[in-house]
């Protein structure tokens, strides 16, 4: 199981700034998470349902008709839950769950030349991904809006993680070569 995405608290945080329509929350949430999570509208609304049931938000009928015109508002207990979550102790390091670790681990004693091939192809994927993330970073307007800064910080995180994976492949490559001799 992957750790659950902090959708609930992300939504509480957005509503703490000001009340919002349901349809606004999806777009705002994508900005907050830098677009790295592929969250659908259904997930947003099902989380809002739960927040309503738990009394963390309330729902005002807006001026228009339909589900999208209802305004969600944070309740005092919602604010308390958000404050508690933001003040939580530090998070555990990210678990290593990438499929490539398992594949490489299996290939090491099964077919070492396939392991080297995997390292090569995976390395290309990482280089291309880093180039793409760098292009996205260059496309940001620097220091203009808080949304751009947030996005830039997330791109930095993504780049540094790919860099770590790339360095790990280099280490694998070198160690496998030594064992082979």
């Amino acid at each position: 199981m992957r750790p659950p995405l902090p959708v609930k608290h992300g939504l509480l945080g957005l509503l703490a700034r000001r009340p919002r329509y349901g349809y606004e929350l999806k777009a705002e949430f994508d900005l907050l998470s830098g677009g790295f999570w592929d969250l659908n509208v259904g997930q947003i609304y099902s989380t809002l349902e739960r927040l309503l049931k738990d009394g963390l938000v309330t729902l005002d009928e807006g001026d228009g008709a339909g589900e999208g015109r209802k305004i969600y508002r944070l309740t005092p207990s919602g604010q308390a839950e958000l404050d508690l979550w933001l003040a939580q102790p530090p998070l555990k390091p990210r678990p290593l769950r990438d499929e490539v670790y398992v594949r490489l681990g299996l290939l090491v004693d099964r077919d070492v030349s396939a392991a080297f091939d995997l390292i090569e192809t995976q390395r290309r994927v990482y280089h291309l991904q880093m180039a793409e993330l760098t292009r996205q970073k260059l496309a940001l307007a620097r220091g203009q809006r808080v949304a751009d800064l947030r996005r830039e910080l997330l791109l930095d995180a993504a780049l540094l993680h790919v860099e770590a994976d790339l360095k790990w492949l280099d280490t694998c490559d070198e160690k496998l070569r030594r064992v082979r001799i």
């Binding site: 280089h127 180039a131 260059l138 360095k167």
Partner: peptide, 21 residues
């Protein structure tokens, strides 16, 4: 530094004096 190389349009990797990629 791979992060620096990512600014290029083309990344050439050398190994033992030869073009590896």
């Amino acid at each position: 530094d791979a992060k620096a190389a990512a600014y290029g349009d083309r990344v050439i990797t050398l190994r033992d004096g030869r073009v590896h990629e």
